[in-house]
Design a protein around this nucleic acid. Sequence first.
DNA 1: TTGTAGGCGTTATCAC
DNA 2: GTGATAACGCCTACAA
Lengths: 341, 341
Amino acid sequence: MSQRRERDGRRVGGRVTIYDVARAAGVSSGTVSRVLNGGTASTGAREAVERAVTVTGYVPHQQARRLAGARTDAVAFLHCVSSERLFDDPNVNGLLLACHNALAEHDLLMVTPIGADGPAEIVMRRLAAQIFDPILLFGASAGSPLVADLVDRQMPVVACGVPLGHERHVSYVATDDRDGARQIVAYLRSRGRRRIATIAGPMQLPGGVQRLAGYQDAIGGDFDPALVTHGDYTYASGAAATARLLRQAPDLDAIFVASDMMAAGALATLQPAGRRVPDEVAVVGYDDAPIATSTQPQLTTVRIPWQRYPGQLTRHLWHRMDGDDPSGIIMPVELIIRGSA
Amino acid sequence: MSQRRERDGRRVGGRVTIYDVARAAGVSSGTVSRVLNGGTASTGAREAVERAVTVTGYVPHQQARRLAGARTDAVAFLHCVSSERLFDDPNVNGLLLACHNALAEHDLLMVTPIGADGPAEIVMRRLAAQIFDPILLFGASAGSPLVADLVDRQMPVVACGVPLGHERHVSYVATDDRDGARQIVAYLRSRGRRRIATIAGPMQLPGGVQRLAGYQDAIGGDFDPALVTHGDYTYASGAAATARLLRQAPDLDAIFVASDMMAAGALATLQPAGRRVPDEVAVVGYDDAPIATSTQPQLTTVRIPWQRYPGQLTRHLWHRMDGDDPSGIIMPVELIIRGSA
DNA sequence: TTGTAGGCGTTATCAC
DNA sequence: GTGATAACGCCTACAA
């Protein structure tokens, strides 16, 4: 089975090592390594090695490189959102693709443990963290043991969104959700709304806390706990939260919903309840998700600059891998006015 | 930066090795390794090691394990189809998810280089093949250098579909497309069709050749080159191929199209051309893709038993990893009768 | 049952 | 500029 036959001058089965190359090139393994890793070497040696590499069909053994302290050529994209969302949300799967391409330009291969949802976090922790060095993190929630673990291991990780509780130890690329929320409230005020309610997202997610914080910033003295409720970003939770709001504060004339999906749920509850949108109640969503344009009326919402993520993500990752300290960037968002408010 | 402070009794930054565990447990590293890998050890040693593992927070270093000849705990899912299809085709992304889950039961983590389309095959070859041992292959075409390379390296790979040209060296799980095509032709005959044309798929893909072969089997002596044309599985190619067919063999009264997507294209060409479906021309697709039920009329097609793939795939992979010789299974398909034929 | 030691393929640190 | 050689962390004969 492990016979080492020759064919076309190259080994068949059984690895070609750096020693084979060294022998073929008539130099030492050290020289080969130097040539391959851009170290110093004479032109003669360089050429001999390059020739030998081609002729032997040598491919470096990543595991061994890694063990010897060098870098892996692969980065993992760890997502803590459900795999369904990975497939269904064009923003997310577009991001995935774009990241791959951006990384490929640095000769890095991006892989992702698809299907590894919440419970499987254990698996990811146990394995992914070992196989890859650099990590792109998506949708990690506050206090997630995954993040703590990664930080402990001092791995170069870059997160999408502010990594709550690890702001100083993890690089991140985020959007200014707090300002987005402020803009929304200001816009609603400018349209004459006075009793502005909100359906906030989960407080474990950065978006959840930032959007609520922005709402509070802008509402200021008018703040009324009865106008605040929570959902978990799903359609159903949006509908339920709206029903609650209608009970707690029947006089509301606007709702800022922390996600378009929940906002769609809100519309579905508002209209049967006899509240016309936007005439009686203005509704504003968040994300500019596909559903935003297929509701009736279409949702006024906030657009996240997804197209800027891949570039920023790879930039920060690159820096981290170069040993720089963690850094972060917060990008501005854009208000999209449509029919619902 | 690489200071090794203590915290909660565990190291912070700087790896916990098997030696640390050994020291903590008061045994040798060999014993630790044996305990961890299910070797023989006394109950006392076993307990001490297990305690030490928890207390030190030890996590095996996969790279080192691998280098030392042990197995990786991760399997790569390599797909040679476009990433769009990965996201858009529920059959495919369902397969991805299901494979992940099936593998997870064996404590294997499945990862996939998403976004690595055709041109990036080089990257995958250079890297993925080094990082992972076992490989799940999806959509690889005949003569693909990727496959040849994997075979050369004697890696345990299991393919979805017969790996054309490597049938003996690669395990596979496939469906009986040849029989599916035969069934279709037989069905069309039974409905009185006499001039049965076909739009075949690419001859580099196993499905392409098998479905055409089955068509020829069943057509037998009635074979007429004018009734055969090719497409590349896309909607547009189906439409174009149909136009060609209509020119070459205006008297056709049925078309067996090798994919539902192409069949949809066929319908779109047939109807404006004044050929009523199914009255004047019967159309049969293949795949039972989502589009099959959203055409007018809905497509009669062949259903591939996707739900059986994950189990079979992992079973064969498991065997391969155990050193068994490559093996394959061909599963039966099911004819789904709808309005188009 | 257990400890010891050699080796897996690289990289990096030395002398030369 | 180049060649030895010591890690890297683990597994596995082999010996005890």
